[in-house]
């Protein structure tokens, strides 16, 4: 049928891709963004706000995403910066709701207690790392990103990632050993 209205192809092309983007990106990455923010030092009480900020930025910047880096790296790069911002503003003392955060993830009370203590220890030990090492350590050892992907997230070179990771692992090892030794003074390492 002939139409008197010429519809611009570009506008037609707008139908479909972008709105699905936020929905899909959110579904795909919310969980890891949430975890990442927490492990990068965002207080439990701030996680909602921080997660929302990450995806608000994602929403705003999706049009600029050029696909050069994997989408996950791009989203994580935003999360790392948001976490950094929240950390700067944060009031210290962020373990107040730890129990809530891990409630019911363990099958029995003893296991739950162990898990709570371990998560508490995790955050203490992460807090002892400097922010750069902490970020690399969390991305590598907890989110299990490859070193090249971490380099992409942080915009640093690969050697820097390896160097920070080595330092972070060493510090984390030592911190854990100290804690284990303190808890079990009679047991040798």
């Amino acid at each position: 049928m002939a139409s008197s209205i010429v519809y611009p192809a570009e506008a037609v092309a707008e139908v479909l891709p972008r709105p699905l983007a936020l929905d899909g990106v959110y579904r795909e990455h919310f969980k890891s963004v949430w975890r990442l923010l927490r492990r990068l030092g965002v207080a439990v009480a701030q996680l909602d706000d921080a997660s929302q900020d990450v995806f608000l930025i994602v929403h705003r910047k999706l049009a600029d995403f050029d696909g050069r880096a994997p989408l996950r790296s791009w989203v994580f790069a935003i999360a790392v910066r948001v976490a950094s911002d929240y950390r700067r503003r944060a009031v210290r003392g962020r373990t107040e709701q730890l129990d809530d955060a891990i409630a019911d993830t363990a099958p029995n009370p003893a296991r739950l207690r162990e898990l709570r203590e371990s998560v508490e220890q995790l955050h203490e030990m992460l807090g002892e790392l400097d922010d750069k090492k902490r970020t690399v350590f969390v991305l590598s050892e907890l989110e299990q990103l490859s070193a090249p992907e971490i380099a992409s997230v942080l915009g640093v070179n690969l050697n820097t990632v390896y160097s920070r990771l080595r330092g972070a692992k060493k510090s984390f090892d030592a911190a854990l050993s100290r804690r284990r030794a303190a808890r079990s003074p009679g047991v040798g390492r």
């Binding site: 950094s84 911002d85 942080l154």
Partner: peptide, 19 residues
Amino acid sequence: APSVEPSLEIDGSPEGTYF
């Protein structure tokens, strides 16, 4: 708008320049 003002730098170094 997002409540944060993500800075150009992470911890003082110019990381993540592509973004």
